[in-house]
């Protein structure tokens, strides 16, 4: 009997120290938004446990479910919103390559606060969704990883780069121009092609396969990998029209590189209410 009471007391104490759980994402007011995942300011925000489903609506589909759920907290300073996503991942995948996918996550919010929500999977024609996307390899670049093949693969064999041969001067405009000829994605300004200055990007979509660079929402982010997995902070402008105590919706997606997840092969949530609170 004594043991049972002790156990009950212990359980009660453990529960009181755990995060407050809510069934929607609550963006709590904060004077200053934390940029780091471990900031104690996150303790003020309740936690939402979002269940994820494999993307199985359009081909190519995710055949084997991976990340079952993510833990979500949110804070807002009245003009920006910050979301912290946590999920379990046994391996850190931050080096892209042939058959090497990278870990990533994204948040999705309807562009307009309307009664009829866009399709939860990437929106629809006439009902755009704003996507803020974070990637582990971009985080590695922002954290200081270099922009050469040997930064990714230290033992890579390199024969010759013509733009690094004489008479081109190192660091000259002529050298940069010639290097771009062998890097068409960068020459065209594909924002994805790096080298990246931020680990996140602002995107817009009107349905599967339509993702494209969107108007800037001031996206920022920071991801940290620890023993259990990733904790990622994504910040962007507060959704337009989201006043205190009003609701819009939010959806999440997670990619595990080690599970060959990329593009349409992802774990995703449906729409989840997102409410702004002053307290």
């Amino acid at each position: 009997m004594k043991q049972s009471i002790l156990l009950l007391l212990l359980l009660t104490a453990a529960c009181s120290r755990g995060p407050k759980m809510v069934n929607e994402v609550v963006a709590v007011a904060a004077a200053k938004l934390p940029t780091l995942p471990a900031d104690s300011a996150w303790d003020a925000a309740p936690e939402h446990l979002a269940a994820l489903l494999p993307q199985d609506l359009v081909e190519p589909r995710l055949a084997t479910p991976s990340t079952p759920q993510i833990r979500v907290r949110s804070l807002t300073n009245g003009s920006e919103i910050a979301i912290r996503l946590e999920w379990e991942d046994a391996s850190k995948s931050e080096t892209p390559g042939p058959s090497k996918m990278v870990d990533a996550c994204a948040i999705q919010i309807p562009e307009k606060m309307e009664k009829d929500l866009p399709e939860p999977q990437m929106g629809q024609e006439g009902k755009r969704v704003q996507v803020t996307y974070w990637r582990a390899d971009w985080q590695a670049t922002v954290d200081g990883r270099g922009d050469t093949i040997r930064d990714l693969y230290p033992n890579a064999a390199i024969d010759h780069y013509p733009f690094e041969a004489k008479p081109l001067e190192k660091g000259s405009d002529a050298q940069r121009e010639m290097a771009l000829r062998y890097s068409p994605a960068r020459a065209l300004g594909n924002i994805r092609s790096g080298p990246r200055a931020a680990p996140v990007e602002d995107l817009i979509a009107t349905g599967p396969g339509t993702l494209s660079p969107g108007p800037s929402l001031g996206a920022a982010g920071k991801g940290v990998f620890a023993a259990k997995g990733w904790t990622v902070v994504i910040a962007r402008k507060l959704p337009e029209g989201l006043s205190p105590n009003q609701r819009t919706s939010i959806a999440f997606a997670v990619w595990q590189g080690s599970q060959q997840e990329s593009g349409a092969r992802k774990m995703r949530s449906g729409w989840i209410p997102l409410v702004r609170r002053n307290q």
Binding site: P98, D137, T148, I149, L152, P184, A185, R192, G194, S262
Partner: peptide, 21 residues
């Protein structure tokens, strides 16, 4: 996404890890 690398039976599409295309 490397779907094309997977799909091409002749394996004549290559992923560039520095441009992510």
């Amino acid at each position: 996404y490397q779907e094309c690398v997977k799909g091409c039976p002749y394996k004549k599409v290559f992923f560039n890890p520095l441009t992510n295309t």
